[in-house]
C-alpha cells in the first residue's frame, strides 16, 4: 500500500468536509478497497473512514413503508434486521462470507458498483432511492456501467431506501473462486409490476431485464419466461464462463428467483 492519512470523522458533515480534499477517498467496510490498495492499484492521499458515523448505521422503516438502511450498515446487520424485506435480508445474508459481512457495507458496495456485486441488483430491482449527503438519486439513474455511478467526487451514500415488494427473491449463481455473482438475479413483484435486475452478467454492469419484467408482470411464474431469449452479446466472457453461458444463466436464475419469491 502507498502511504495515506486516515481520518475517522463521526458526523456526515465532517466526512463530507474531509472528502473535499483532492485525492481523498471514502472508506466503507474496505472489503474491496483494502485489497485494491494492497495491490497498489489506488493511490489516495487520504482515506476517510465512514465506519465511525452513528447516523449512517442501522436499519429502520420509513413512514412510506420503505426499509431504510444506513450507508455504513454492514451486510450482517441488514441480514438480521431487514426482516420486513426478506428478499433483501436474504441477499445480504449471502454476500461474501461471514467475516466480510461483518465489515462490508451497503454504501460501499453501491459506491463501488462492481459488476458482480449483489447489492446493485437489490437496489435496482427494488427501485431504491440512494440518499447522499447532497441529494436523492433513483436507482434507475444511479448505475452507469461497471464501476461507474452517478456519484460525484466526495459524495457520500448516507442511506438507501428500499421500497418493499409484495414478494421477492435474489438468486445467485456464484463464480466458484471469488464467490461473487457469476450471475445474480433479483426479482421483486410490486403491486404495479415486476422488476428484474441482473448482476454479474453484463459488460455494462447491473441492468434491468425488461422483457422478463413484462412477462412476469403479466404472469408471475417461471413458465412466463419460457419464450424469452437472452443474447450472449455484451455479456461478460472470462475464464469462469462465456457470454452465452452467462446469458443462459440469466434466464435460469430468473426462473428460480420467481419460483422461490416470497
Amino acid at each position: 500500500m502507498y502511504e495515506f492519512e486516515m481520518t475517522r470523522p463521526t458526523t456526515i458533515a465532517d466526512a463530507a468536509k474531509a472528502l473535499g480534499d483532492e485525492d481523498a477517498q471514502a472508506l466503507g467496510g474496505g472489503q474491496t478497497l483494502i485489497p485494491t490498495l494492497k495491490q497498489r492499484l489506488a493511490m489516495p492521499s487520504a482515506l476517510v473512514s465512514l465506519g465511525a458515523i452513528p447516523e449512517m448505521k442501522g436499519v429502520c422503516m420509513s413512514d412510506a413503508g420503505e426499509v431504510c438502511v444506513g450507508g455504513a450498515t454492514p451486510h450482517a446487520v441488514v441480514a438480521a434486521e431487514a426482516t420486513a424485506y426478506p428478499g433483501l435480508a436474504g441477499l445480504a445474508a449471502h454476500i461474501g462470507d461471514p467475516a466480510v459481512r461483518n465489515r462490508g457495507t451497503v454504501g460501499g458496495s453501491l459506491a463501488n458498483n462492481d459488476p458482480s456485486a449483489c447489492y446493485p441488483a437489490a437496489a435496482l430491482a427494488s427501485g431504491a432511492t440512494i440518499v447522499t449527503n447532497t441529494r436523492e438519486i433513483a436507482a434507475d439513474d444511479y448505475f452507469q456501467g461497471m464501476f461507474s455511478t452517478a456519484l460525484e467526487d466526495g459524495e457520500i451514500i448516507t442511506e438507501v431506501r428500499f421500497p418493499v415488494p409484495e414478494v421477492s427473491h435474489y438468486e445467485k449463481f456464484v463464480q466458484p473462486a471469488s464467490r461473487f455473482a457469476l450471475v445474480g438475479v433479483m426479482v421483486a413483484k410490486f403491486a404495479d409490476g415486476v422488476r428484474v435486475a441482473v448482476t454479474g452478467a453484463s459488460e455494462d454492469g447491473v441492468y434491468r431485464w425488461t422483457e422478463a419484467e413484462a412477462a412476469l408482470s403479466a404472469s408471475f411464474s417461471a413458465d412466463a419466461l419460457a419464450d424469452l431469449a437472452v443474447s450472449g452479446d455484451g455479456m461478460i466472457s472470462d475464464l469462469h464462463g462465456s457470454g452465452d453461458y452467462r446469458a443462459h444463466l440469466v434466464k435460469v436464475m430468473t426462473g428460480r428467483a420467481v419460483a422461490k419469491a416470497a
Binding site: 472508506l27 474496505g30 472489503q31 483494502i34 473512514s49 467475516a99 466480510v100 465489515r103
Partner: peptide
Amino acid sequence: AVKSCTMF
C-alpha cells in the same frame, strides 16, 4: 469475526 488483514 472479521478479517484482520482487511481492516486498518
